[in-house]
Simulated scan of single mutants.
Amino acid sequence: MIYPTWDKSANIGVTAPSSGVSPELHDMMKLAIRRMEEKGFSLTVGPTVWTQHKAKSAPASTRANEFNEMMADDRIGLIFPPWGGELLIEMLENVRFEDIRPKWILGYSDLSVLLLAVTLTTGIATAHGTNLIDLRGDYSDETSAKWQAALSTRQGESVTQYSSPLYQKEWTHDTPSPCVFHLQEPTEWRVVGNRAVTMQGRVLAGCIDVVRHLIGTPYGDVQRFRRQFAHDEPIVWVLENCEISTVDLRRSLVQMKLAGWFDDCSGILFGRSSANRPVDGYTVEDVYEELSEELRIPIVYDIDCGHVPPQMTFVNGAYAEIEVAEGKGTVKQTFLP
């Protein structure tokens, strides 16, 4: 594994490999940029950030070219898109994976397609965490703010994160506050079987709605990643659901299992989701229980990851040691080669 190095003095490249920001939301994006500059960061903002047409910021080749250019720019140490979207997968065939340099890429949702593809293909760590536009507040909660500590960790060092005390149940953009998130609901990490669990292994994370489409492509070879970059160590999966029903979630997880993505998996963490809609009485808890029984591994859910904030920063490729008990979780990630 290769871990990028970054510090606050490095430039941040802002590009939109999935969705850009439509004109009516430009003020929100400008505020996020201003907040980052007030905190001492310098940013290079690409044209794709300011455009949005037919569910994408720009044509696939345009998005890929801007990403490739920022990856080649020695001044830029972090690629930090505004947010996710829908159609990032279109640009993968135009990404110059052979030329990718070790620099951080940070985000979640549709961006996790790019994050996972880069790590699986190149062995370069990427970071599944907050989006740039969610940092537009006067300050961030402790969980979300941990992205800086995670990205500043050096090879051989560790970063430890703890489950949040509170989470945001619903998005309320119409009631802005000094902290973007309205954290009011008590956080409880739940475990299938209601017991204390531990798990260890290399982290792979993503939004299941979109990363499932990497199966069978040159960018989704999990077993090659384990052999070539992860010393055949077990995998800890961190997955979150944006908008699929429980039966679609089940179909996706079975597909991942049949594709070998869960071979030598030591455990799975699932983020909180408002999309886990039951179908004919089939609940998300049923999904988790069936998967745990089939794979014979611990499964933890309602963790700090994904579209129900706040979220931890999970580093694809890092070695994780995870402990969960009595509704609380600890995640230690060590940047092992």
Rank of each mutant, 00 (worst) to 15 (best):
V21D: 02
I2P: 03
M1E: 03
K56T: 14
S266Y: 00
D7W: 09
P218R: 05
M91G: 01
I124N: 04
I100N: 03
D221S: 14
D302N: 14
L291Y: 00
G137F: 11
M70S: 12
T187E: 13
M199E: 05
D141Y: 06
V113Y: 00
P178M: 04
E170Q: 07
D263G: 03
L25C: 04
M312H: 15
G271M: 03
R190W: 07
M28E: 06
K56N: 11
Q184R: 09
N316R: 05
S252Y: 09
A55C: 12
P186H: 09
D280Y: 09
H307V: 15
L116M: 14
L258C: 08
L25F: 15
P47Y: 04
Y319N: 08
S109H: 07
G306K: 06
Y139E: 10
D27Q: 13
M28G: 02
Q228D: 15
F335T: 01
K30A: 10
G306A: 13
T15Q: 09
H231A: 15
C179K: 05
W50D: 01
R63H: 04
P178N: 05
S57R: 08
W171S: 10
S273Q: 07
T313C: 13
W50N: 07
G77I: 06
F314R: 04
V247M: 08
N65I: 13
T160A: 06
F67S: 04
P176D: 10
A117Y: 02
R195Y: 03
V192G: 08
A58E: 11
G46N: 01
L151G: 14
T62P: 01
K56G: 13
E290F: 06
E38K: 14
V236G: 02
Q155K: 00
I244R: 04
S140N: 09
V254W: 07
P310A: 11
E98C: 00
L115D: 02
E38S: 07
M70V: 15
D232V: 12
R212L: 04
Q228C: 11
L269G: 03
S18R: 08
E86P: 00
H26I: 08
E142T: 12
D302T: 01
V210G: 02
F80L: 06
T187A: 15
T51P: 02
P176G: 07
Y108V: 07
F314M: 12
A259Q: 13
V203F: 00
T121L: 10
G317R: 08
K146H: 11
A16W: 09
G327R: 07
P309N: 11
R63E: 10
A64C: 14
R101G: 03
W147N: 06
Q148S: 10
Q223F: 02
G260K: 12
A145F: 01
V21H: 04
N68C: 15
E142Y: 03
V113F: 06
Q228L: 15
L78C: 12
F97Q: 02
A259F: 09
S19M: 05
Y139G: 06
T119D: 01
S140T: 00
P234M: 07
K328G: 11
P234F: 08
L78Q: 12
N194C: 06
R212Y: 07
L114F: 14
T143V: 15
L166V: 05
P178Q: 05
M91N: 00
D110M: 02
S18Q: 01
G46E: 05
E86A: 13
A117C: 10
